[in-house]
């Protein structure tokens, strides 16, 4: 990733990490992507409500800074494993929203040709090895991808996203231990949004901070405010440097909040309206980043308006693309179970 020139960085010496490290253009692109995630999910939710998308979906609205902060410092061929709440990760890693919409619509032009839907959204070409319907399922897989990187000497770093719920799965503990023992280039990113479905971390997790669990596996455990893009990106940047240097894994706990319910069946009985309202009004990651960009002179109202307009158009076009795309033929139901033999 290109960084800002020296003269520019000198003038930003007292600003937070990302404003010293990235160009204005790159930072505006981050805002663009954060809006793209937000509007994509709002668009998907609306399509679901209108009956255009079936099944269910898990929205990450409110967690955009976490996805962007972790993915921004990654190289294009670095890899991620994602979760059931993975739309943001997918976009942050470089996916096109039109192919994501197409997947949600179950169309052949979707990233998984309509076989995976929201919960298995992937973009292998951009290094997203897939969202996962099993809590914690992607964590050992990320460690395996990191083992490949080490054995094949590709220099790739692998990020495993998971939620607070996954930190109580055995797979989490087994995977962190192996990654540490073998010093693999992997970063464990726990997006702690406070609730595993309805059960709060206070009721489910013996430690106050999930990052404390890093100590059990002799790796750095870093806590960041997951709603502040710069904090997340700085932690990611440091963990990537450590991984690339062969020093092993890092556990980053990104404390954040999902504005929406767990899935479409959620009645939000386990948290108060006031709590949700507080996060939405006072700690929205897009609002926070936008204010900083404005305050530090990286963007003005006109620039923000241009981003919002561009995103709105991209979303509208994406939905149209999905609607117009063909559904798979019923005769192809058995495809992709096994590798087709020539």
């Amino acid at each position: 990733m290109a960084t800002a020139s020296k003269a520019v960085t000198d003038s930003r010496a007292n600003l937070p990490f990302v404003y010293r490290h990235y160009s204005a253009e790159q930072l505006r692109e981050v805002l663009h992507k954060m809006y793209l995630i937000r509007r994509f999910e709002e668009g998907a939710e609306e399509c679901y409500t209108r009956g255009l998308i079936h099944g269910t979906m898990h929205l990450s609205i409110g967690q955009e800074a976490s996805a962007m902060g972790i993915c921004m410092p990654l190289a294009e061929d670095d890899q991620i494993t994602s979760t059931h709440r993975g739309h943001g990760h997918c976009i942050a890693k470089g996916a096109e929203v039109k192919r994501m919409f197409a997947e949600f619509f179950g169309k052949t032009t979707g990233y998984c040709k309509g076989r995976g839907g929201s919960m298995h959204i992937a973009d292998v070409g951009k290094g997203n090895l897939g969202a996962n319907g099993i809590v914690g399922g992607g964590i050992p897989i990320a460690v395996g991808a990191a083992l490949s990187s080490k054995m094949m000497k590709t220099g790739k770093v692998v990020v495993s996203f998971f939620g607070d719920g996954a930190n109580n799965e055995g797979a989490f503990h087994e995977a962190l231990n192996m990654a540490a023992v073998w010093k693999l280039p992997v970063i464990f990113v726990c997006e702690n949004n406070g609730y595993g479905m309805s059960t709060s971390t206070a009721r489910s997790t013996a430690v106050k901070n999930i990052a404390e669990r890093a100590a059990a596996y002799s790796m750095p455990g870093v806590i960041v405010n997951g709603n502040i893009f710069s904090e997340v990106a700085e932690a990611s940047h440091q963990a990537i440097a450590r991984a690339r240097a062969g020093e092993g894994p890092t556990l980053i706990e990104s404390k954040t909040y999902r504005h929406r319910g767990h899935s479409k069946s959620d009645r939000n009985r386990y948290r108060t309206k006031e709590e949700i309202e507080d996060w939405m009004s006072n700690r929205d990651p897009i609002t926070l980043f936008e204010s900083e960009l404005r305050e530090f002179g990286f963007i003005d109202d006109k620039g923000i308006e241009a981003i919002r307009d561009a995103v709105a158009q991209e979303i509208a076009e994406g939905i149209e693309f999905a609607k117009a795309s063909p559904s798979p033929d019923i005769s192809e139901t058995g495809n992709y179970v096994y590798t087709e033999q020539a």
Binding site: Q79, I141, G144, L147, M152, A171, E174, A175
Partner: peptide
């Protein structure tokens, strides 16, 4: 380590990425 779930997952991840 004696970690069948994690070990199998590491093998799956390695296979997925070219090994």
């Amino acid at each position: 380590p004696i970690s069948e779930l994690g070990g199998a997952g590491v093998a799956v991840g390695a296979a997925l990425t070219g090994m």
